[in-house]
Design a protein around this nucleic acid. Structure first.
Lengths: 225, 225
DNA sequence: TGGAGGAATTAAAAAATCTCAACCCGTAAT
DNA sequence: ATTACGGGTTGAGATTTTTTAATTCCTCCA
């Protein structure tokens, strides 16, 4: 249950639906934000940057389709998952929905079980493309197995260490500011001291036995062999 | 892991065909749902979530190809089996059909016997990847018999234990998050405590007597010899 | 040469997470 | 009715990871 809570925004004008979905998603460990009309949805989407947005097609102020179009027009929401919810089993809406760039489409009445499995499926699909094996020279980082290999030798890193290394290795050579690292690995709401990063960096260097992380004084760190 | 009746949705505008197929599939133990045009097919597919969908290419309202495209665009139907039915033995249609993501393609007139064997074959193919005997080094897991063998010694696991081990062994080395394990083994609607997984893992380790499950702290577990 | 600022090193405290044993509750078998 | 068993829960250690805090090291520059 500790998979860095994913944020889900639900927008629907029917309080009942809002409640049911919120309840179920919360139970699954998602962090849930709700909105009761199109404008509120837009506003909260911008402020909270959710991982998934569930939009009722029929809403006051702005319809789900409109909200979706507006969001997709913004770079920040190009990748965000969007699911449409609709009472009408209307073909026209469905087509328009998928064309607007929704990732899935669920029609009411909603079965919580089915709905949850769809949400999970979406995230699973997302993860797939997200967790790829990195190979930089003789260093291999496999996020699926959580192991690092240095010249055929397996190295075991702890969670934070692994995530930190993975982040740096995603863009070898690029310098990551301490702040970036904090946001990506720890989350932008966690507060930890600056030395914490140093210590982790040190452990990684130590365990890998290879000098692959370079310090850029006053700036941050980068992965480099 | 129960063998619940497979649901099959048949969509065709010719009542005769519908009848024949329904009769034959029912006899084979499938649960059959029928639709007489594209729209009805879409609607019933969503409501009943069938395991297999048989689509006539030429149908009122929407053609089979259109229905297929719409379905495949939805996450919930990414994995669903789809068979196209067509009167014309038209090359163009066939190609378009398979490109749209159909799993098989049968042309009329239909021989019930041949048709059934194709359907069975599809499910068998699906099953293969689903319930096959796993052998990892000297550990053998047979999901059909619910038997584990470790160096010729049979080990008896309880249901949950078995399913958990099987899940992990399906992708040796890959780390499964606690959430994934919960979803796969317990189902995404059941709520059980976190320690439950631990305890089951422990029982497995204990019974197998071999150290084959590795914990990745803060992340999950993986099968590894 | 002697700070000053930033980073590296350490050790040790604090927090998070597992393991393990004991226990409880249904249900199927006897 | 009794027992055996699967399987879910709990809480107390044990372990590991993460963070903090104190100290030492550099490197640049006045």
């Amino acid at each position: 249950m500790e998979t860095k809570a994913r944020k889900v925004l639900i927008a629907d004008d029917e309080p009942d639906i809002l409640e049911i979905l919120k309840y179920n998603l919360s139970n699954e460990g998602y962090e849930v934000i709700t909105a009761k009309d199109g404008d509120e949805a837009l506003e909260k989407a911008r402020r909270t940057q959710p991982d998934l947005i569930i939009l009722d097609v029929m809403m006051p102020k702005k319809t789900g389709v409109e909200v979706c179009q507006l969001l997709r027009a913004q770079a920040a929401f190009k990748e965000t998952l969007i699911i449409f919810l609709t009472a009408v089993n209307d073909e026209g809406t469905q087509i328009k929905g998928l064309e607007t760039g929704a990732d899935d489409y669920v029609s009411k009445p909603i079965s919580p079980k089915v709905f949850l499995s769809r949400v999970n499926a979406l995230f699973r699909r997302l993860n797939k493309t997200d967790a790829r094996i990195l190979t930089i020279d003789h260093v291999t980082i496999d996020p699926e197995r959580y192991i690092i290999k240095v010249r055929e030798n397996e190295v075991v890193l702890a969670k934070k260490e692994f995530e930190l290394l993975y982040l740096l290795a995603l863009k070898p050579g690029r310098v990551f500011l301490r702040n970036e690292i904090l946001n990506q690995v720890w989350g932008n709401d966690v507060i930890v001291g600056d030395r914490t990063i140093d210590v982790h960096i040190r452990k990684i260097r130590q365990k890998l036995g290879v000098d692959c992380i370079t310090t850029v004084k006053g700036v941050g760190y980068k992965f480099e062999l």
